[in-house]
Amino acid sequence: MMKTLTLAGALIVTTSGYALAQQTFSAWGHDFTVSQFAPQQMMVGVATDSKTGRKFNVVKLKNGKMMAISPITGMQGMPEMAQDDMVQ
């Protein structure tokens, strides 16, 4: 589990590069400010498409919902989530 979280974190840092050190990044024509990072313990799994075999990481949130982990550069549109779906 820690290996998956470490890999997911490394993927985010890699895609965001230097901007992450500044706590900001730009995507989809918008500038974003990132909150301070804090270590958390989460339930992490791998979702596999039964038809194509493609895989991606998922995190189970405290409220029971699941969230996909994807690199920012791999997303087509800007994500939008309800406040109670945020990792807190």
Rank of each mutant, 00 (worst) to 15 (best):
G45V: 08
S35D: 15
I12M: 01
G45I: 07
T4Y: 15
D49S: 08
M75C: 07
G45A: 11
L61T: 04
A47R: 10
A68H: 04
T24W: 01
F25C: 10
M67N: 07
K65T: 02
Q23G: 07
M78K: 00
F37D: 11
Q23I: 00
Q41P: 02
L61A: 04
Q88F: 08
P71V: 05
T15Q: 15
Q88C: 06
M42F: 05
I12A: 03
M2D: 11
F37L: 15
Q88G: 13
D84E: 12
T48P: 03
Q88L: 11
D85V: 05
S26P: 05
T33W: 08
G9Q: 13
S26L: 04
L5D: 03
A47M: 08
I69T: 03
Q22T: 10
R54N: 05
K3Q: 14
H30D: 00
W28K: 04
A10G: 15
M43T: 14
M1Q: 15
F25W: 14
F25S: 11
G29E: 00
V58M: 13
N63F: 09
G17E: 05
H30R: 02
P79Y: 00
Q36F: 07
Q88D: 12
M81G: 06
G45F: 09
G45P: 04
T14E: 11
P39F: 06
P79W: 02
Y18C: 04
P71G: 10
F37N: 10
Q88V: 11
M2Q: 14
G74R: 11
R54E: 03
V44D: 04
L61K: 15
K62F: 06
A38Q: 14
Q88Y: 12
M1N: 13
Q40P: 04
L20E: 01
D31Q: 15
R54P: 02
M1Y: 12
K55Q: 13
Q36C: 04
V44N: 00
W28L: 14
E80Q: 08
G77E: 01
F56Y: 03
V46R: 08
T6R: 10
G64P: 07
